[in-house]
Design a protein around this nucleic acid. Structure first.
Lengths: 213, 213
DNA sequence: AGATTGTTTTGAACGCTGTTCACGATATCC
DNA sequence: GGATATCGTGAACAGCGTTCAAAACAATCT
């Protein structure tokens, strides 16, 4: 054909992402991709090893886009000279919420995909890309004037991220539209507010026998 | 056959749960269920409308079990005369962590299942069962002496739950075994500690234009 | 008892899926 | 131009969820 191999690959990925966004994992079918891309089923397997390979590639694009969104949000605040911790954390959370809303099918598919794999043979390239976001959060916390050692700051960053993530994903599994968005906003506001206040009070966080067994 | 209809149904559900636990959603196959239950494929469809119907029924059992675990954990602490908010919240979080560990395949499958459905025709019987847990958390918060109005308490309860949920599910998508459990414990301890301290400082949590758009 | 009706169980069959691979088309080199 | 390697193709295979006519069974009536 006339088209470059890499170019067709990109087109396949765009189609795949659209399919995932519309109908989730179940909607990612080899024959549909082939038909929409104007190639044969076999060619799909020539470009990618599996359908899983296609999905993995889509996921990489998503993670890069997410990381970019976070970085852009921070740059925007820096440009406006805003250094307030609360505002910066809220901006990051907001960026994540908007990202999830912009990828209603493909992002859940990424999460489901990760859970389905035995995580073998991979040094978790996923987590590696997420570390980028943890770094951003940690640096915001570092500027916040809480006196946290680096390790605690790292944990706090991951905790905040996981919490926001939990709020967003739990939120979308429930209720009706408008109600949903409000609930998520309220929960994130409360989380960030309480988190900052809690950190400002200082003190240690290690306790003997934390989780009762 | 000799067996009661309901009894065979139970056996099918037990088999289905085991299959989900071993290999996730992909492992729930009509023919496997039929073979292991000693019935024919058609009979499975006689007992349940769909494979989705089977999965839904398994999920109900899981949610009931989770609610039970939470209630039991609270009852245990009450029996020991423990009323400390921190200890009670940690016990609830610990109960959830142990529940997830005890259901390594079927619980992720429930989460994935919920995300896959258009949530039509259902008044979300799932969320209804989870409300039971939110009630428990809210009542613990009510005993904590923070002065929160009922609505804020409700939001706070859901926020805490979602956060713990996010920590647990994010945690299991990463790293190696031992490291994982430690990380989750640390994050939960930090979350609960910071959350309590933040609530103790009081004040309001509503802010104009929270999430920057 | 046999006949008749209603119920439950069955497994072959259908359409769809991911994946393969021999084959023909196309490009690359000498 | 001819030989060689590369690429694209779609029929074919195994496996999946799901259906449904028929067989097996149960219950009732005469």
């Amino acid at each position: 054909m006339a088209l470059d191999k890499e170019e067709t690959g990109e087109r396949v990925l765009a189609i795949a992402e659209a399919l995932l966004n519309e109908g989730g994992m179940d909607n990612l079918k080899a024959r549909t991709i082939a038909e929409q891309a104007g190639i044969s089923v076999g060619s799909v397997y020539n470009l990618f090893s599996d359908l899983d390979g296609v999905h993995r590639a889509v996921n990489m694009r998503l993670l890069d886009r997410l990381g970019g969104a976070g970085a852009v949000a921070m740059a925007e605040l820096a440009r406006r000279g805003i250094t307030d911790v609360r505002q910066r954390l809220m901006a990051l959370a907001g960026a994540y919420v908007r990202f999830v809303e912009a990828h209603p099918g493909s992002w859940p598919a990424l999460l489901a995909f990760n859970r389905r794999r035995p995580v073998l043979t991979e040094p978790d390239v996923y987590e590696a890309r997420l570390d980028q976001l943890f770094e951003i959060i940690a640096s915001v916390l570092a500027d916040g004037g809480f006196d946290l050692d680096e390790d605690t700051r790292r944990i706090a960053a991951r905790t905040l991220w996981s919490s926001v993530h939990g709020i967003v994903t739990s939120g979308y599994a429930a209720r009706s539209d408008r109600r949903q968005a409000d609930e998520i906003s309220q929960q994130i506001e409360l989380l960030v507010s309480v988190f900052i206040r809690g950190l400002e009070r200082g003190g240690t966080f290690a306790h003997a026998g934390g989780i009762t067994s």
